[in-house]
Amino acid sequence: MHLRMLVAALALGAGTAQAQTAPAGDTVRVGGKVYTYAEQQPQPPGGMQGLMKFLGSHLQYPPEALQQRIEGRVFVTFVVNPEGRIEQARVSKGAHPLLDAEALRVLPLMPAWTPGRQLGRPVNVAYTVPVTFRLPPAAPAAAEPVKYPYDVMAEPPGGMEGLMRRLAGTLRYPPKARSSGIQGRVFVQFLIDSAGQVQEPVVVKGVHPLLDEEAVRVIRTMPRWTPARYQGRAVPLSFTLPVTFGLPR
């Protein structure tokens, strides 16, 4: 049975917005530096729509999870290497072992991405994709497919690159957090209403009140998006964005 799948946010690397002044790529992993933010972020084949279609056609709702009506959002973090292949995939925030395993099984199967670039050369870039497993009000028979709730995903002004530029330009590292060495990734969920307005930002996974508050502040000030569409009409869409606060090592 195919999953009714909401790709809540095609996370823009681990660091959608880097508030610090340290150069990207301070984190070292097997195979070389891994950038949390690159000048050109990696892109999935076909963009956001291509990623959504791939997951929709490959994800299978685990039968046991379906029977027990287990739902939730799984955050998978991986590295897009200089050849565009997905490596080092791991669950950075799980929902349930059954759902975690399915999300982790499918993402590495994706065809090659367009790799991220720094100073004109392809590099390793960390990327996070949140995948929501959600059941309809009444569980259908195991063989009955579950339809997508959206035909077209919401788009930020300027696309993914525009979103990154805006966040990088508006996010401010709280001085007390910087001096105390506080860092981490804040996940903010919000609603893009049918008019494209950002509504109801809330922290679904926080790090520290100082960082959480700043992430919510920036999301709340975002300009209007192009709303999601379903069967030709604009509809609301829940979106989750990971925002990384990192300090130089």
Results as ranks from 00 to 15, higher is better:
His2Glu: 08
His2Cys: 09
Leu6Ser: 04
Leu6His: 08
Ala8Asp: 07
Leu10Met: 14
Leu12Pro: 06
Gln18Gly: 11
Gln18Glu: 13
Ala19Pro: 13
Asp26Gly: 13
Arg29Lys: 10
Gly31Val: 01
Gly32Pro: 02
Gly32Trp: 15
Tyr37Val: 04
Ala38Glu: 09
Gln40Glu: 11
Gln40Asn: 08
Gln40Ala: 06
Pro44Glu: 07
Ser57Cys: 13
His58Gly: 07
Leu59His: 09
Gln60Ala: 15
Gln68Ala: 15
Arg73Glu: 09
Asn81Pro: 05
Glu83Trp: 06
Ser92Tyr: 04
Gly94Gln: 00
Gly94Met: 00
His96Leu: 11
His96Ile: 11
Pro97Glu: 02
Ala101Met: 12
Glu102Ile: 13
Glu102Val: 13
Pro115Thr: 07
Arg117Asn: 09
Gln118Phe: 11
Leu119Ser: 12
Val123Thr: 07
Ala126His: 06
Ala139Pro: 06
Ala141Val: 04
Lys147Thr: 08
Tyr150Ala: 10
Asp151Asn: 12
Val152Asn: 00
Met153Thr: 00
Ala154Cys: 12
Arg166Thr: 03
Gly169Ser: 15
Thr170His: 15
Tyr173Glu: 07
Lys176Met: 08
Arg178Lys: 14
Gln183Lys: 13
Gly184Asn: 05
Val186Leu: 08
Gln189Met: 12
Ala195Glu: 01
Gln197Lys: 14
Val198Arg: 01
Gln199Ala: 14
Glu200Asn: 13
Val203Leu: 05
Leu210Ser: 04
Leu211Thr: 07
Arg217Asn: 09
Val218Tyr: 12
Arg220Phe: 00
Pro223Arg: 05
Arg229Ala: 08
Arg229Val: 02
Phe239Asn: 10
Phe239Arg: 14
Leu241His: 06
Thr244Arg: 14
Leu247Tyr: 06
Arg249Ala: 09
